[in-house]
Each structure stands twice: as C-alpha cells, then as structure tokens.
C-alpha cells in the first residue's frame, strides 16, 4: 500500500509539480512549434507520451544490463540517442501497419520526436534519480502526460490570443513565451501538493 501511494505521488509529481515543459524546460521546441491548434498539439502529445513510455522501458534495460554491468557509462549519450531514434522509426512503422487512422493523425509529428529534448532528458534523468523498473515506466508515462497537458493548454491559449490585440512586435513567439511564463507561475502552485 505504501508502495502504491509512493508510485501515485511520483506520477503526480512528474505531471504537475516537476512539469517537464514549464518547470524543467524540456521539450520547448515542440511546445512552441506545434502548439498553434489544440488538435495537432494533442496528437503531438499523444505521440510523445507513447515514445516516452517505450523509451523509459528500453533505456532502463540498456542502462542497467549493458552500460552499468559492463562499465560502459561513457557510451550512455550515444546509446540513448540511437535507442530513441530507432524507437521513433520503429513506432512509426508499427503504427502505419496497425492503425492507419492513428498514423494519419500523428503524421509528420512522429519523426520530429527524435529531436525532442524532453525524451532524451527523461531517459537521462532515470539513471540520475536511480529509479527502478516500475518507477521508470511511471516516470516516462508521467513525463509524457505532463508534456501533453502543457502543450494542449498553451495551444488553447494561443487560439484565444489570435483574436487579442497584441502589439506588433510581440506577435508570434514573444506573446507565446509570455503566456507560457504566466502558466509556469500558475504551475508553481502545485509545488505545495507533495514532494517525492
């Protein structure tokens, strides 16, 4: 029971308190680049969540049973980036075969995920925090949910901001950054929830 409670806390902490985008600054590029419309933002979040959970799974095994076991930690960055790149490729082929509808919905967002630093950051944070297998999966999934939450919220705000009277030089990226700043301030309120 204690264990279950701890895992739930870890999940909440990853999604809200240490939100990947707004508190840890990971995955800012897609956060700003693919957040014009709520639907596309949601597709991007879905694809990222899927890849993140898979990456957490794969990199945990590679790190524990190959890199640490054979004293090859200096190859960590190299092996992780290869895992992520091939995983994205694999997921793309898999989805194309199994569910063409989902493939169409995710479309060009899948390959973009390789250079999403939230995924690489998540993979690197697992060995840094010494998570075990279950914790790694929860952490990866929570990171993806947090990313989706942030990108969908900002897309909603941007859709509204289009109709606002924004000064010419603040249009586009600057106003999005300012909106994100206000959101980050709001997310800091979650800091009181719990700490893991």
């Amino acid at each position: 029971m204690d264990n279950l409670q701890y895992l739930l806390l870890l999940f909440i902490s990853t999604v809200l308190i240490n939100n990947f985008v707004l508190i840890q600054f990971l995955g800012i590029c897609p956060f700003l680049g693919v957040s014009r419309h709520v639907e596309t933002a949601f597709s991007m979040g879905l694809a990222a969540t899927f890849v993140m959970t898979m990456t957490a799974f794969a990199t945990y095994f590679i790190n524990t049973f190959i890199l640490v076991a054979l004293n090859l930690e200096f190859l960590r960055y190299m092996s992780f980036i290869i895992v992520i790149a091939s995983l994205v490729q694999f997921v793309e082929m898999f989805i194309k075969k199994v569910s063409p509808v989902l493939y169409k919905a995710l479309g060009i967002y899948l390959p973009l995920i390789t250079t999403n630093c939230a995924i690489m950051g998540m993979a690197l944070l697992i060995p840094m925090n010494d998570y075990n297998f279950i914790e790694s999966i929860i952490f990866g999934f929570g990171a993806g949910v947090g990313f989706t939450l942030a990108i969908v919220l900002i897309a909603g705000l941007r859709e509204e901001a289009q109709y606002g009277d924004v000064p010419r030089d603040l249009q586009g990226m600057p106003i999005t950054l300012i909106l994100a700043g206000l959101m980050a301030l709001a997310f800091m309120g979650f800091a009181g929830l719990a700490m893991v």
Partner: peptide
C-alpha cells in the same frame, strides 16, 4: 525571486525577443 524561477525565464525571454524584434524593425 520571480526572475530566477521558471516563470521569470519565459517572461524575460518573451519581452527580450519583443524588444529585439522592435529594434530589428
């Protein structure tokens, strides 16, 4: 404190890019 917090980073960069756009124009 806000300048050090994550929110301050977004706000400062947003305003800075706005000012640079103005200068550029």
């Amino acid at each position: 404190i806000i300048m050090i917090l994550p929110g301050g980073a977004f706000l400062t960069l947003g305003v800075l890019v706005g000012v640079l756009n103005l200068l550029d124009r």
